[in-house]
């Protein structure tokens, strides 16, 4: 194995640069090193001004999503050896405004997440004294997959619809809405449907399917959105055929 590997990192400093450029670093190539370790090596030993986000280094906090050789990846789970020999190009997540070097602005996602009402909605809250809402393992299994989203936003970077139309709610936000819709304890599906069944919501999705491919937690947002479309259509037909059903 070669001793080092070349890292090409996108740099951007809003105070100095009009547009981003690539900077090259030679970093040690080690079997257990991931792209994030290489970035930390640069920050600690070579150039302290390189900015990026990271925290847990075990694929659960969702901070370190970046583009590695053009593909959205969690850099804590992407080994350098997979790219050797050759260069590793690290860029900020696509489709988001770049704040600095590898750091992108995700406030848009948080606003969209809030709008999708990702919390349990009940018509009537059950008092704590009456114990838990019963839920069988099968009912748990019905939404479990969608609850695994770590908000790493790789799916937004993979979604051309979001790239072309920043108003699109996007894969993770819709998947999380669906996570609560599918939860047997939740009664808020109608409220969320009103919000998400418009052109910027589920109908914005053209089913490219790449969000599911890049998801590190196998959440399958593409599936969530298509299933949501099916529900929305069924609800629409029901309301047309049986207008007396009402709210």
């Amino acid at each position: 194995m070669a001793e080092t590997i070349t890292l090409e990192v996108q740099r951007y400093n809003p105070e100095k640069d009009t547009e981003p450029g690539l900077q090259t670093y030679e970093v040690p190539l080690k079997k257990e090193w991931v792209v994030l370790d290489a970035l930390n090596y640069v920050k600690d030993k070579v150039d302290g001004s390189l900015s990026f986000r990271w925290s847990c280094r075990m694929g659960i906090c969702g901070s370190c999503g970046m583009m590695v050789n053009g593909e959205p990846k969690l850099t804590c789970a992407t080994f350098l050896t997979d790219y050797a020999p050759g260069t590793v190009r690290v860029e900020p997540l696509k489709h988001f405004p770049v704040l600095r070097d590898l750091v992108v602005d995700i406030t848009d996602f948080l606003a969209k997440l809030s709008r999708a009402k990702p919390w349990l909605i009940r018509k009537q809250e059950k008092p704590l004294a009456e114990g838990e809402y019963l839920q069988t393992p099968e009912q748990l299994d019905a939404f479990k997959q969608f609850s695994m989203c770590i908000n790493c936003l790789l799916c937004y970077a993979a979604c051309p619809v979001y790239g072309l139309d920043p108003l699109f709610s996007g894969p993770a936000a819709i998947a999380l809405a669906q996570r609560y819709n599918m939860d047997s304890r939740d009664q808020g599906a109608a409220q969320r449907l009103d919000i998400l069944s418009h052109s910027d919501g589920i109908w914005g999705c053209t089913f490219v399917g790449e969000c599911t491919e890049v998801c590190p937690k196998h959440v399958d947002p593409a599936g969530a959105i298509q299933q949501y479309k099916l529900t929305a259509t069924t609800e629409w037909f029901k309301s047309m055929l049986m207008p007396w059903r009402g709210e």
Partner: peptide
């Protein structure tokens, strides 16, 4: 007061970038 964030425009030929697209 956000600093000047850099926005990349999606290329017209984005769909030629990868086979899935």
């Amino acid at each position: 007061y956000p600093p000047r964030a850099y926005r990349t425009r999606v290329s017209t030929y984005w769909w030629l970038r990868s086979w899935p697209y």
